[in-house]
Simulated assay, not measured.
Amino acid sequence: MRGVIGAGCCDPKSDEDHDMSEQEDKTKGTLNKVAGEAKDKLGDATDNQDLQNEGKGQKLKGHGQDAKGEAKGALKDKD
């Protein structure tokens, strides 16, 4: 309903929901980076290229989630 005149008065997302979402994105990002690093190192130690690649991909996903959380925070600060 965003963008509709008068929709702001009935928007179910409160500022608290936005804060939670920002923090959730950052938390998920950190968890994915840590898990990805573990998979990357384990794959390297066991000569398992598939596991290593999976770990690298998961780390990239974590960085993306961090960036998403940061962007949400920056947009919230502009309000």
Rank of each mutant, 00 (worst) to 15 (best):
K68V: 02
D79F: 06
G64E: 08
D77V: 06
L60D: 06
E16P: 00
D66E: 12
K13F: 06
G55I: 04
K26M: 12
K13W: 05
V4I: 15
K61M: 07
A67K: 00
K61A: 12
K78G: 05
Q49K: 09
T27S: 10
Q49I: 06
D19L: 02
A45W: 06
V34L: 14
E16D: 05
P12N: 02
D11H: 11
T27Y: 05
G62R: 01
A45C: 05
V34M: 10
D79R: 11
K76I: 00
D11P: 12
G43V: 08
D44Q: 14
K56E: 10
K26L: 13
A74S: 03
R2Y: 10
N53T: 14
D66C: 03
G29T: 01
Q58W: 08
Q52N: 05
D44R: 12
D44W: 07
G57R: 09
L60C: 04
K56N: 09
S21P: 04
G55V: 06
G69R: 02
A38I: 14
N48K: 15
D77W: 03
A67G: 00
D11Q: 11
G55W: 03
H18K: 13
E70S: 09
G36C: 09
E24D: 06
G29M: 03
G8T: 15
Q58R: 12
V4N: 15
G6C: 08
K41C: 14
K28Y: 07
D50K: 13
K41N: 14
A71F: 05
G55H: 03
D15Y: 08
K72T: 06
E37D: 09
L51I: 07
D25R: 15
D40W: 13
K28T: 05
D19V: 00
K59C: 01
Q52W: 02
G64A: 12
L51Y: 07
A71I: 04
G36M: 08
G8H: 15
D47C: 01
L42A: 07
K76P: 02
E24R: 00
Q58F: 06
G36I: 11
D15R: 08
G43S: 07
K72L: 07
Q65S: 09
L31K: 10
K76W: 02
D17G: 00
D77G: 04
Q52G: 04
